[in-house]
């Protein structure tokens, strides 16, 4: 059984204590503290990372069970010198305040735009069939797994819609 995990393109050895969550592994063991701990119980979304293309709460999964997996964290999406489109849009639209939920929001939004393209439905979808749209109502529901206590939701939706519409025209 391989005991390595790929994070942002780099291989790492998994922790020996099976109790270590993927979140604590990232933050404590690897110093990738861009991924945040807000509740440690899957109730806030601050720890959202993308594993094999799917967004998950990294607090509710054991690092040891991710051998061979490919993980993207906020650090893998962009840098201050070269931010991703969503990262830049969050700055432009002030899609944050304190910034603590922000990496989770952006990881979540990154995966969410792919989900919409792939036709995933949501609780806000009028119909379960057909193409899904990155409408404001859809984004609000699909981003409801990421709490923002500062109350930047309106700006978060604006930032995501901005990128989604660029995607359509590009």
């Amino acid at each position: 059984m391989p005991d390595t995990i790929t994070i942002n393109g780099t291989d790492h050895t998994l922790p020996s204590d099976p109790r270590v969550s993927l979140l604590d592994f990232l933050r404590h063991d690897l110093g990738l503290s861009g991924t945040k701990k807000g509740c440690d119980h899957g109730q806030c979304g601050a720890c959202t990372v993308i594993v094999n293309g799917m967004r998950i709460n990294s607090c509710l999964t054991l690092a040891a069970l991710h051998d061979g997996d490919d993980v993207t964290t906020i650090e893998g999406l962009g840098t201050p010198e070269n931010p991703s489109a969503l990262q830049a849009a969050f700055v432009e639209h002030d899609g944050y305040q304190c910034g603590y939920c922000t990496p989770g929001q952006i990881c979540s939004a990154t995966a969410m735009l792919d989900e919409i393209k792939a036709g995933f439905a949501s609780d806000a979808s009028e119909s379960l069939d057909g193409e899904m749209e990155a409408s404001a109502d859809e984004i609000r529901e699909r981003m409801s797994g990421n709490l923002c206590r500062c109350g930047a939701y309106a700006n978060i939706v604006a930032a995501i819609r901005d990128v989604a519409s660029q995607g359509e025209t590009a």
Binding site: E75, P80, Q87, A88
Partner: peptide, 10 residues
């Protein structure tokens, strides 16, 4: 400080 926040480097 926006870029530091959105890239997780703050």
């Amino acid at each position: 400080e926006g870029l530091a926040k959105v890239t997780g480097t703050a």
